[in-house]
Simulated assay, not measured.
Amino acid sequence: MTPLRQGTAQQWLCEQILGSEPAAEQEKPKPRCSQAGDRAVDFTATTPYHQREGHLRVPGNHTERIIAGGGDDRRDGESGGRQEERGIGLGARAVNQRSRAVTLSPECADQLSAVGMRWT
């Protein structure tokens, strides 16, 4: 969702008549993640699953729990030093990547193959 751009008069009306104030930074929605960011999240969740299970035959409904923060694995790119546990729909992501295998970049396909991705 694109934030609304208000003119000076509209902003004044909102502040004076409605009593509204601009949203604080923590109230603003997180920016959308790029494909590179999605891929980083995929590998953040894929690696522990592969190490634990020894394969990437992930059931379609599997959710992998990861600790995010302190690095580039958060969707907003700014961890602020906080760590949080997140659930990543690893099963759905694996199914999607298998169905899009032909359109994946060679680098991405090689990375997934290196950690044991089952393509069929």
Rank of each mutant, 00 (worst) to 15 (best):
T2P: 07
T2Q: 09
L4H: 03
L4E: 13
R5E: 04
G7H: 08
T8I: 06
L13T: 06
L13D: 13
L13F: 03
C14F: 14
Q16D: 05
Q16P: 02
L18K: 10
L18C: 03
G19T: 09
S20H: 08
E21N: 10
P22F: 01
E25V: 02
E25A: 07
E25N: 05
E27F: 00
K30E: 05
P31Q: 08
S34H: 09
D38R: 02
D38Q: 04
D38H: 04
R39K: 06
R39W: 09
F43W: 14
A45G: 05
T47L: 15
Y49W: 11
H50T: 03
H50A: 15
Q51G: 11
R52L: 12
G54D: 08
H55S: 00
R57I: 06
H62Y: 15
H62A: 01
H62L: 03
R65E: 12
R65D: 04
G69A: 09
D72K: 14
R75S: 12
R75K: 02
D76K: 04
G77D: 02
G77H: 09
E78A: 04
S79R: 00
S79C: 11
G81K: 11
R86E: 07
I88H: 01
I88P: 08
L90W: 07
A92P: 01
A92R: 15
R93F: 04
A94W: 15
V95A: 03
V95L: 13
N96E: 07
Q97V: 04
R98M: 06
R100L: 04
V102K: 10
T103Y: 00
P106C: 05
P106V: 05
E107C: 10
E107Y: 00
Q111R: 08
A114S: 12
V115G: 08
V115P: 14
G116K: 12
M117V: 03
W119R: 11
T120W: 15
